[in-house]
């Protein structure tokens, strides 16, 4: 499915960041993800698209084991991060989540100050040795999250007092403050205006220099704009996965075509 020769791949050694094989997810009796196998490349933006309820968020949450927090959720199959099985017994999900950061569908800032929102992750991971370093991380993260100019004068105001779009950018800044290797973004732009969306997209583009980014989106244009790879999910199945350009121009599967052209979903 992904035998397209990739010139960049030969440059970087670890081409494939995440390797998922035969992943099944059950919510109780509800079989939400069926037999999904996918290879997510490093330093690439991968978009997950598909109609509502098809399991995009569920699959995304498997990649950093956020599904562990849902009691009825059961995951089968193997998911390798840099060749290591993340569902292995010896893996501490906390360490995994430090490497695989996440931005959620709904903005969920901590009810603390803007500064503390960003500083929390670096603090618990010991990324800063002193206050100056922490300040630096906070500023850098907010700048990359395209929020710095709006909040630089009120870093100690509550993060929950920001507008919805600002909150989402705060969450993005918070996620990148811990310098993860993979960033999972669940519809990060659903609450943003076109300007903020453009800023976030720019940010994603920039992040791909260093990270692997997986983004769930309902906007075909956005997927086409930011991603190099696209995966189309339908009713829990991975229908098609490939180069974004190919998916949007010559989809192999009729379901993909009808979704992209707006006939299902």
């Amino acid at each position: 499915m992904f035998d397209t020769p990739n010139r960049e791949a030969s440059v970087s050694q670890t081409d494939i960041k995440i390797n998922a094989r035969d992943v099944q997810v059950f919510y109780g009796d509800n079989h939400a993800i069926k037999d999904v196998s996918v290879d997510i490349e490093d330093k690439t933006v991968t978009a997950f698209i598909g109609p509502s309820g098809c399991g995009k968020s569920t699959f995304l949450r498997c990649l950093n084991r956020m599904n562990d927090t849902i009691d009825i959720c059961r995951v089968e199959g193997t998911i390798l991060l840099d060749g290591e099985d993340i569902y292995d017994k010896s893996v501490d999900p906390v360490q995994l989540r430090a490497k695989v950061g996440m931005v959620f569908q709904k903005p969920n800032p901590f009810p603390k100050s803007i500064y503390d929102n960003i500083a929390y992750g670096p603090r618990i991971h010991g990324l800063a040795r002193n206050k100056a370093e922490l300040d630096e991380i906070v500023e850098k993260s907010l700048r990359r999250g395209a929020l710095w100019d709006e909040v630089k004068d009120r870093l100690h105001a509550p993060g929950t007092g920001l507008s919805g779009g600002q909150q989402q950018r705060l969450c993005i800044a918070r996620a990148i403050a811990t310098e993860p290797e993979v960033l999972l973004m669940d519809e990060p732009c659903s609450a943003l205006d076109p300007i903020a969306t453009a800023q976030v997209e720019e940010l994603i583009d920039e992040l791909k220099q260093n990270f692997s980014v997986v983004i769930v989106t309902h906007s075909m244009q956005q997927a086409a704009r930011v991603s190099q790879k696209t995966a189309f999910f339908h009713l829990g199945n991975l229908v098609e996965y490939g180069e974004t350009g190919q998916i949007f121009t010559k989809p192999n599967d009729p379901r993909t075509e009808s979704y992209i052209t707006g006939r299902i979903g």
């Binding site: 959620f104 969920n108 901590f110 811990t178």
Partner: peptide
């Protein structure tokens, strides 16, 4: 306490205990 707060804390790599004591308990 909204579950999204727990998700947020776990998402940045806090342990369950950190999530509870830093975020849930104060609220």
């Amino acid at each position: 306490v909204p579950p999204s707060i727990r998700d947020a804390a776990l998402g940045v790599g806090a342990s369950k205990m950190q999530a509870v004591f830093h975020h849930v308990l104060p609220l």
